[in-house]
Amino acid sequence: MIRVLLADDEAMIRAGVRAILSADPAIEVVAEAGDGREAVERSLAHRPDVVLLDIRMPRLDGLAAAAELRRVLPETSVVMLTTFGEDEYIARALSDGASGFLLKSGDPHELIAGVHAVAQGAAYLSPKVAHRVITELGGGRMSHGSAARRRTDTLTPREREVLALVGAGLSNAEIARRLHVVEGTVKAYVSAILTRLEVRNRVQAAIIAYEAGLISQT
């Protein structure tokens, strides 16, 4: 069972998201919060697997709450759920350690898929957000291809292969099946990759994979 905490300052939005998630028998909404500070406090109390955070909330906004959650509950995955898709929100959410970024205007199936993906240790970006990130990586402010290639050059060939699959959005279990190894081996590779690249989570590692041109190798 995937335990989820939902944080949004609009009760109707919370009710709608809860209804969508409740349609999946593998997901349980264990708590709700109406602002970012409450989200952090209730997450500490309930220890959910996934926290869904709106960005614009009172007391503590979702981005600040995400950063706080990554500090106090590093084992909990954080997904930003918002109507706002501006680049600065995406960039800050990813740099603060969020595992996913979903738009409220997206398909409800994306919400369920995103929760499952991050709960399994993968990263998840809604298609619209992923397109924007990839476009920026191709020539915008997020594009640092040479630097990314220098960083990935420090990895072993096997680690680069695993990084490419992380960048493609595969979970540890999916990577294990693809490479015909046990999941524990993949976890060890991913941990080593994050350490050597000096990044906080799989989303940031995935960005480096895109920047370094590794995704086409999958």
Rank of each mutant, 00 (worst) to 15 (best):
E183W: 01
D8R: 03
V133P: 10
E32K: 15
F84H: 13
P74Q: 05
S99P: 00
V133K: 05
L111M: 14
D54K: 04
T83C: 07
L125R: 00
L5F: 05
L111F: 12
V115T: 05
V79R: 00
L69F: 08
R47F: 08
A212H: 09
S216P: 04
A113L: 11
H109L: 10
H180M: 06
L53R: 01
Y189K: 01
E110K: 05
S146D: 14
A31C: 06
D8Y: 09
L81R: 03
D35V: 13
E88S: 13
T76H: 07
L103I: 07
V162C: 00
V162E: 00
A31G: 14
L94P: 14
M142H: 06
L197D: 11
V199W: 10
A119R: 04
L111D: 01
V72K: 09
V51P: 00
S99A: 15
S43D: 04
E136C: 07
V166D: 00
P127L: 09
L214K: 13
M12I: 15
R178K: 13
I208W: 01
P157Y: 03
H109N: 11
T154W: 02
E88P: 00
S22W: 01
E110V: 01
V199H: 08
A65L: 13
R70P: 00
V50C: 06
D24K: 03
V190T: 11
A212S: 12
L179Q: 09
